[in-house]
Design a protein around this nucleic acid. Structure first.
Length: 301
DNA sequence: ACCCAGGGTCGTC
DNA sequence: GACGACCCTGGG
């Protein structure tokens, strides 16, 4: 472990608040003193701040900080181009992209993302963050930097010592058994994480993820989007359903009148939303989803 | 004090 | 495929 610094100059589409508060990650915390964020990436602790058009990353790292950042922040992807394409689709997309113009989709660890989003089910963000911190503190490794203690997210092996009762005590609620069983299945390689990462086909990948307890369609799509760079998936949660219903019910009903018979309750369902998203956003659906989600959720406060 | 919703999933009908 | 239950917490 050693302290390293990495400065990124003239970076486009990189706002700390947009990246860390848009709902894709749970382990980054704002320091209100200097507006920096600190988080844990693997076994590394990173502190990151923005000054003018410069990103300054300080890290206490086992690996090379430049490699970590290039990979984790997906610096090779051109967001200016993506935002331009999305903005030209319609005015709603233009507004939401403009709102979240500093968003980048992170390339997070698959295992950590898997467990984090199982925990996210029917849960609120403060509680999700709290549970993940407790898991890390109890089962991860301690990292001390500048007289502060941080904890890596536990590996499957580290987490596998926890019983269902242990997990319940940490406040996971009914998700305890799902996390326990999924951990066991990963340990036994009933689902092989390293193979998942090599899979190209979205549908095969989803099918594999759905074998894991606690992973349904929404969680599977979040894992693919936030840890595997599968930008064409479109996770539908309450917020996305809300915003899509508000914006596009008329459009969906119009398609329905022509092609299918009307649904009894006359409300749109997930299948219809997915079809619309695929037609409208194509391969960029996941990115569109993230801008829409962030835009809609933030206008609530 | 009570009620409700929260980045859903699962079992049952 | 629809519907209710599910553990727990913060906010009204």
């Amino acid at each position: 472990m050693n302290e390293q610094i990495y400065t990124i100059d003239n970076v486009e589409s990189f706002e700390l608040r947009d990246i860390f508060e848009c709902g894709q990650c749970f382990r980054w915390n704002l320091d209100k003193q200097d507006n920096s964020y600190t988080g844990i990436v693997g076994k590394n602790v990173l502190n990151i701040k923005k000054e003018q058009n410069k990103i300054i990353v300080k890290g206490y790292c086992t690996d090379n900080i430049k490699d970590i950042c290039n990979n984790y922040f997906d610096l090779a992807t051109n967001y200016e181009k993506i935002k331009h394409q999305l903005s030209s689709i319609d005015n709603n997309m233009k507004l939401s992209v403009n709102y979240g113009k500093g968003i980048r989709i992170l390339h997070q660890d698959v295992w950590e993302t898997l467990i984090s989003f199982i925990i996210s089910a029917n849960n609120n963000i403060p509680r999700i963050k709290g549970i993940i911190e407790k898991l890390s503190k109890n089962y991860g490794q301690e990292i001390e930097w500048n007289n502060k203690k941080y904890y890596s997210f536990p590996t499957a092996s580290e987490l596998s010592v926890a019983t269902v009762e242990d997990l319940r005590k940490l406040g996971l609620g009914f998700r305890d058994e799902r996390v326990f069983k999924t951990t066991k299945m990963i340990m036994d390689k009933q689902v092989d994480i390293t193979k998942l990462e090599e899979m190209e086909d979205i549908n095969e990948l989803r099918e594999e993820l759905l074998k894991l307890p606690g992973v349904g369609p929404k969680v599977a799509d979040c894992i693919m989007l936030f840890s595997m760079k599968k930008y064409e998936v479109f996770p539908i949660d309450v917020w996305v359903k809300r915003v899509m219903t508000e914006l596009y019910t008329n459009e969906i009903v119009k398609i329905k009148d022509v092609n299918t018979k009307l649904h009894s309750n006359n409300t749109i369902n997930n299948k219809q939303i997915l079809e619309l998203a695929s037609n409208k956003y194509g391969k960029l659906a996941g990115l569109a989803q993230q801008y829409l989600f962030y835009w809609r959720r933030e206008q609530e406060n």
